[in-house]
Simulated assay, not measured.
Amino acid sequence: MVRNVGLDFTRSIAILMVLICHGLSFFFMNHNVIGYVYVFGYLGVELFFVLSGFLIGSIMLKDIYHKPKWKNLYEFCAKRWFRTFPAYFVMVIILYFVQKDNFNMQTLFFLQNFRAEHLDFFAVSWSLSIEEWFYVLFSIFFLFLAKIRNSSKKSFILVVVLLLILLSVSRVYYVINYSPLWDFGVRKQIPLRFDSMLVGVLLASIKLYYNKIYEYIPKNRFYLIANLLILFFFGVLYVYNGIVHDTINSSFYGRTFLFVIVSISCAILLVYFEKCKINDLSQGVVKKLITFLSKTSYSVYLVHFPIFMFIAGKYQSNPSILSSLFLMLLSLVVTYAIAITIFLFIETPFMQMRNKLFPNHAKDGVGRY
């Protein structure tokens, strides 16, 4: 099975940004880093969303949209759940014994995003809820679309674009009428965040149906420079200033169009990463490190937050930079030790079982997703 190093690199960047976000928030909050916390956390998760939409969108197109059978829908969902459920529910069980009082049934059904206090039990699970519901709802939707439109490529792209517009309009309506907070009220709400993954699906469809356009994008550096400028000024800088100056919760742009603009920028970066020279790396240290960070990213994402919280709560008595740095490094070591264990003894056996049950999935080179 051939791995795309560029996509692994994207996933590695995403998990490192999330780790930096929570590392700063738990160990360096006395050093005026609040703006950086949200910038790293927001962009890291957005990269995950777009990458997930791109990879899973490719599978949806191949296995559901172009083979619209209920059996394929069942296999698609089963394969996804073999990938995501085992490690997730292992963490739920562990957290249940650690903080039983915060447990809520919504976490078992990926419905914890609708009330802020429900996320106290498993804080980072909000993004997984969005992804899981996206997989289920849109795989069903694309199956029906394929049956109605006879798997037309133009219909698929048109519908995805219309859905992106509809979701943006829905977010505008919601913000105008309910004035939600930026983070929990918009960023973490299931129906309002499907657009990030839909951008990834749109990118997958462009790669499949209009590959010449997809191949042309990374050949022109102008697009990369323009995209980085847009991402910086209309994404990074806007979020940073909004958090530092406490204006993000009242910002119309920040709670509406920011999300789709940043998602599109992440999608364009994804094209460059997939096609960049990093894919030419031989089996050296750098490639092995990227592959390691990518493979363990899901387990690391699941386990790091409670570990950071425990170590910070127990040992963070001296606010000096040196002690904070030491505790953060200690947290990372513990995180990766536990994450590697979960990857080796939970994730890997279930993925091997999945590939035996669905051998075509492994043969097609998507067995790791």
Rank of each mutant, 00 (worst) to 15 (best):
V5M: 10
V334N: 01
I268P: 00
I346Y: 01
T335H: 04
D364A: 15
Q316V: 04
I225F: 14
E215P: 02
F232P: 06
Q112G: 08
R187K: 14
I93Q: 03
S297E: 04
I176T: 12
F122H: 02
G23I: 02
H304Q: 15
L43T: 03
L158F: 06
I157K: 13
L16A: 05
I321M: 03
N177H: 07
S250W: 03
L325E: 07
F350W: 09
Y216G: 04
I206Y: 02
I321Q: 00
K219L: 10
T291P: 03
Y36G: 12
R187F: 12
F121D: 01
F252G: 12
H22L: 13
V286D: 01
P68V: 13
F103R: 11
K69G: 06
S320E: 07
F326Y: 13
R11I: 14
W70L: 14
S152F: 02
V172Y: 05
L163A: 06
Y210A: 15
I213T: 05
F257T: 14
L111Y: 04
E46K: 10
P319N: 15
S168A: 14
E131I: 11
I56L: 14
I268H: 04
P218N: 11
K69V: 11
N211K: 14
G365E: 01
L95Q: 02
A116Y: 05
V2M: 15
H245K: 15
L128Y: 03
P349Y: 09
I290F: 05
D63G: 12
L198H: 01
A339Q: 02
F184I: 06
L43A: 15
L108P: 00
S170H: 07
D101Y: 02
L166S: 09
F305E: 06
V124D: 00
S320R: 12
L332W: 06
L330I: 12
N227Q: 08
S151C: 08
K154W: 00
Y214Q: 15
S151K: 15
E46T: 04
D280G: 08
S265K: 05
L237E: 08
N279D: 08
N102C: 08
N249M: 10
L281D: 04
A123T: 04
S297D: 05
K212S: 11
R11E: 03
L164C: 14
I148G: 02
Y216F: 11
L166T: 06
N318H: 07
V159M: 13
V45G: 01
G313S: 14
A226K: 14
V169P: 04
L164F: 06
